[in-house]
Amino acid sequence: MSLTAADAPLCLPPRPLSRAPRALLPDGTVDTHFHVFADGVPLASRRSYTPHVRTLADWQAYAAAVNIAQGVLVQPSVYGFDNSVLLEALAADRANLRGIVVLHPETDKAEFQRLDALGVRGVRVNTRNKGGLPFTSITALSARIADLGWMLQFQVRPAQLEEIAALLPAIACPVVLDHLGFLDLDAADASARVAKIQQLLETPDCYAKLSAPYRLTHVAGYSAFADAARQLLASHPERLLWGSDWPHTELFDQMPDDAELIELTHDWLGDAGVAHQVLVTNAQTLFFSR
């Protein structure tokens, strides 16, 4: 649901990290999904939430505490096509940050090349929030970004997974699916729903993020998310990424504990080799190979 600026509720801020997780993330871990917000930058006039200001320095403090080495900034819907906050953050640590922006399909070629040099590696298509690109942009965007080695990143509703499956053969670049397509993992047929993600991952260069369990299940401990993660890890560990989803925007009633989330991530991933593949290898290859 998209609201006017006057109605868009202020979401909760992230909880301070009060303790270190029992085990840190492995060296080289890449956080493939986080956002930053700056004071005084205009927000979209129609949006789904109002964020708290949380800067790159705030994320870097969190990253250092849990042993994240590199990160991928994702353009939040509340900034629409204004990528200035993200680009400023990229400029602050070009070696360790990459970005996913929101661009109009008719953006000038020189602008794509400029953004590539700044560390941008993809375009986000977001149909869940006002301010995102619609599906009608996909074909044109794919053709524009394929030569750059960029990807399309989708934040969609579960009902749109079949539409993505139909579009994949015509997309000429890697595809990344945010938050497991927002599947309802508390449903009785959750395993069958996860199987739809597995079918998408059969397509070359299609990836999914193990991220934001609190958006997919309301059961304490996120056991349904753990089951989904293990189902996917059993079939497609080479196509999975991890993201913190920090600072956990668009939450209004309860905020997760970041130390607990890291500990649960260790539990979901299990084997150290698999954990290294998901947390380090897959992401470094996709985002940091150049």
Rank of each mutant, 00 (worst) to 15 (best):
L152A: 09
A140E: 15
A61F: 05
A8P: 02
V72A: 04
R98C: 02
V176L: 14
K209D: 05
T127I: 04
L232A: 10
A23D: 01
G221V: 04
T50A: 13
A38L: 14
D116S: 03
W268T: 10
R46P: 00
L24C: 02
C11E: 03
L185I: 04
A229P: 08
P16Y: 10
H236E: 03
L56W: 07
L90F: 04
A91Q: 15
P204A: 02
G119H: 11
Y214H: 05
H52W: 15
F225R: 07
Q60K: 15
W150F: 13
E238R: 15
E162N: 15
A187Q: 09
T281P: 00
R157E: 05
D39I: 01
V125K: 01
I262G: 06
A190C: 11
Y214A: 12
L261T: 02
V176M: 11
L264A: 10
D31G: 09
L168C: 15
A229W: 07
P158K: 04
D31A: 06
V72E: 08
F252L: 02
N96E: 03
C206G: 06
T139C: 07
A110V: 09
I164L: 15
A275Q: 04
A38R: 15
T281M: 01
A69H: 11
Q160T: 03
F182A: 00
A172Q: 14
T136P: 00
Q70F: 11
V175W: 11
A91R: 14
L180D: 00
I100V: 14
S137P: 10
T55C: 12
S223I: 11
L24Q: 05
V53A: 09
L185M: 05
E263Y: 06
L43S: 05
S289D: 13
A20C: 11
L103V: 10
L118W: 02
I100Y: 01
H218D: 12
A61W: 09
W242A: 07
A283I: 09
D93V: 11
L240C: 04
E88P: 00
L180M: 13
F288Y: 01
A212I: 10
G28Q: 13
L180Q: 03
F288V: 06
T203Q: 15
E238G: 13
A187V: 08
K209C: 08
T107P: 05
L73Y: 08
M151K: 14
D184Y: 05
Q160L: 06
A275F: 00
L141P: 09
D267C: 09
L24K: 13
A272C: 01
F81V: 02
P51F: 11
F81K: 13
F287N: 12
L118T: 00
I262M: 08
R54Y: 05
A224G: 01
A95W: 03
L161R: 12
E238V: 12
A192L: 14
Q231P: 00
Q60E: 14
Q284S: 14
L133G: 01
D267I: 10
Q113W: 00
D189M: 05
A65V: 01
G99L: 03
P134T: 07
A234F: 03
D257R: 05
M255H: 04
Y207W: 12
A6Q: 13
P204V: 08
